[in-house]
Simulated assay, not measured.
Amino acid sequence: MSENIIKSKSFSFALRVVKLYQFLNQDKKEYVLSKQLLRSGTSIGAMVRESEQAESRLDFIHKLAIAQKEANESDYWLELLYQSDYLNVTQFQSLKSDIIEINKILASIIITTKQKIGKK
């Protein structure tokens, strides 16, 4: 059985977000923005996991669309953390690259699934 790329990438991203949250709290004494990122960044993988047990293809699309919204929100919080000097350019670019990739994969899965529904 092949690896579920979105499942592994969203989990890895969530883990990075948890570690970033710990760093921002302990080293930078930042609590508000990092908490927002923690919520949205970990929700992506949770919704991907939930989509595995979707009741229908429409439910599957809906759950992945929520994951995509959470990814977009995470992108916003990352940008805000960077622009407010809580993240350096290296940290930001690495996380930004991950979230762009996750968004592209989610969009592709949603589009493909919608096309499959339309063929029936």
Rank of each mutant, 00 (worst) to 15 (best):
Y82V: 07
Q68A: 15
L64I: 09
L15S: 11
K69G: 13
M47E: 13
E73Q: 14
S97G: 10
K114Y: 05
I100R: 15
F23I: 09
A107L: 10
D98Y: 07
L81W: 07
Q26G: 09
S40D: 04
S40T: 11
Q83Y: 09
D27P: 02
A46F: 02
E73R: 14
K114E: 15
R39C: 03
A107F: 05
K96D: 07
K63L: 04
I100T: 13
N103T: 12
V32F: 11
Y82M: 04
K104I: 01
M47Y: 12
I102T: 09
E55K: 13
F92A: 04
F92C: 07
S43F: 03
V32K: 14
A71R: 08
I61Y: 03
E52V: 00
L64Q: 13
F60N: 09
E55S: 12
Q68G: 10
L81M: 08
V17I: 14
W77H: 03
E30T: 03
S108P: 00
K63A: 03
M47D: 10
A67L: 12
K35N: 08
G45I: 02
Q22W: 02
F11R: 15
K114D: 15
Q91A: 06
N25A: 05
F11E: 11
D85Q: 15
E30G: 06
T112S: 11
H62V: 01
D27G: 04
Q22H: 10
A46L: 06
Q68P: 10
K19G: 03
E101C: 03
N25K: 14
L87A: 09
A71I: 05
Q53C: 05
N103H: 09
Q93F: 00
Q91T: 09
S56T: 12
E55A: 06
K63G: 04
Q36W: 00
E101R: 08
K104F: 02
I61N: 06
K104A: 07
T42G: 13
K69H: 11
I100M: 08
L81V: 09
Q22K: 13
D59V: 14
S56M: 14
K63S: 04
K19P: 11
L15Q: 14
E73F: 08
N25Y: 01
L64A: 10
E73Y: 11
